[in-house]
């Protein structure tokens, strides 16, 4: 599904080397977690995968479902099925959540050569998912994320994710800003999306989220590459022992 091979990337005008030969394979149907100390390159990985300006790949390759991701514009990567749940979701003033999402969904469908989704069907789907995530219908009329609390923004990321139905999901520090109840709602949403056709990469500093979303594999990202890998229990060990021994 997602194949990252020997990925090197630099960031910003200073061109600091953040990823230094990262390789990772997440097959369809699996959920992998990436843990690591601050500054290890976790967020950089999420931005390199999604094609943000200012993150330059100097070597290596990334394929999603056999397609070369690195050659694509961010919107084409999204249409190819890649979704990033942002650590800090952006506020989009003046654009109502529903307008935003309908525009996004139909842009992706057009790019994939599918029919646009009609308004009634879209509304019905949005209402059902909103109620599952305990999002008040009123919030969907408001400009996206404007004035929302940290927890509401994260819930809105999951809402978008469930509406768009991507084939590969990257979650960047999704648990930050969530209380236990919100964490459970978010995790239930994510778990409902687990399927044999879909892969997920969960980037997190703490093991807490992994109590609710059990990963198939856990990797440590340190010094710009995968320093160690293990199963779900490995996350608990890391939480106990810390990342010191992996530090470069």
């Amino acid at each position: 599904m997602l194949k990252i091979n020997n990925l090197h990337a630099v960031v910003g005008e200073a061109e600091s080397q953040i990823l230094t030969g990262l390789s990772l394979d997440v097959p369809a149907g699996e959920v992998h977690a990436i843990m690591g100390p601050n500054g290890a390159g976790k967020s950089t990985l999420s931005y390199v995968l999604t094609g943000r300006d200012g993150y330059e790949v100097t070597d290596g390759s990334v394929e999603l479902g056999g397609k070369d991701l690195l050659d694509m514009e961010p919107e084409d990567r999204a249409a190819a099925g890649l979704f990033l749940s942002f650590q800090y979701p952006l506020e989009i003033p003046g654009v109502p959540t529903m307008t935003f999402l309908k525009t996004a969904l139909n842009a992706q469908r057009r790019a994939r050569g599918q029919e646009e989704m009609a308004a009634p069907e879209f509304l019905k789907k949005a209402r059902a998912i909103a109620s599952e995530l305990k999002i008040k219908p009123d919030m969907l009329k408001r400009p996206l994320n404007v004035g929302f609390s940290g927890g509401e923004k994260k819930r809105m990321e999951i809402f978008q994710m469930m509406m768009l139905g991507p084939s590969f999901i990257v979650m960047d520090e999704t648990d930050s800003g969530l209380d236990v109840d919100a964490l459970r709602i978010v995790a239930d949403g994510v778990n409902s999306l687990r399927s044999p056709e879909r892969g997920m990469l969960i980037i997190t500093h703490y093991q807490r989220l992994l109590d609710y979303i059990t990963p198939d594999k856990v990797h440590v990202l340190a010094g710009g590459k995968i320093a160690a890998s293990g199963d779900a229990d490995f996350a608990r060990l890391l939480e106990k022992e810390g990342y010191d021994k992996y530090a470069a």
Partner: peptide
């Protein structure tokens, strides 16, 4: 720029 990238990540073209 950050808002533009966020929108593109959701599949909306840069122009749109």
């Amino acid at each position: 720029d950050s808002a533009l990238f966020y929108m593109r990540q959701r599949g909306i073209s840069l122009a749109e």
